[in-house]
Amino acid sequence: MSENTAGQSALVRVEGVEKVFHRGAEDIHVLSQLNLEVPAGQFLALMGPSGSGKSTLLNLIGGLDRPTQGTVHVGGDRLDTLSDRALAAWRARHVGFVFQLYNLIPVLTAERNVELPLLLTPLSPAERRKHVATALAVVGLSHRAKHYPRTLSGGEQQRVGIARGIVTDPTLLLCDEPTGDLDRKAGDEVLNLLQALNREQGKTIVMVTHDPHASARAARTVYLNKGRLTNEPEQ
């Protein structure tokens, strides 16, 4: 564990973060002097146009990428100084990811997909099965446990993705356009589920979305434009 500098109430604290990508000789500044705090238990929506850096910021908070400058603290851990190995272990313990395209492993059944993060824990097979059953019950898919992703609808696949994201009971759930590939009905089901996880289980959720309908479900919405955060969408 690294130094604990985060405030008591802020689970996520991003300070002075810059992110620069290099494309040939050109430097692309995606995030500039960005600061963000997400209190524990908050459901935050992150909106902004394509290319504004939403997913980049989500990747930094999730420890999938490192800032060019600045610091990222999550739950007391300073992510930008952790080694690759430590960062992987940190992700396994503390973060659940939900992706736009579900990203399930097609050769595994729903329950085996949900079990994947648990394979990195010392749990016994029986304990893993118990956790998987609970996670699938939370998303209402116990009856589809033995089904392969190709036999599930988009909404069901995303719910399996959410079950995989919460099966280790992480502190933080990061969702990248979780309804982006779903119709309105399936999208609503997913958003209801995320809201329930936030309200009933106190999960801190950061959700990237383009959709105002989705962001309306969040307790707070911030906007990212040209690498800078605002509380209001740019007119």
């Binding site: 190995r85 990203n103 990195l120």
Partner: peptide, 16 residues
């Protein structure tokens, strides 16, 4: 490649 990325995202190390 994408699936391997997912495994890494959920905590699989390079060694794994």
């Amino acid at each position: 490649i994408g699936e391997l990325g997912v495994l890494k995202a959920i905590g699989f190390t390079n060694g794994q």
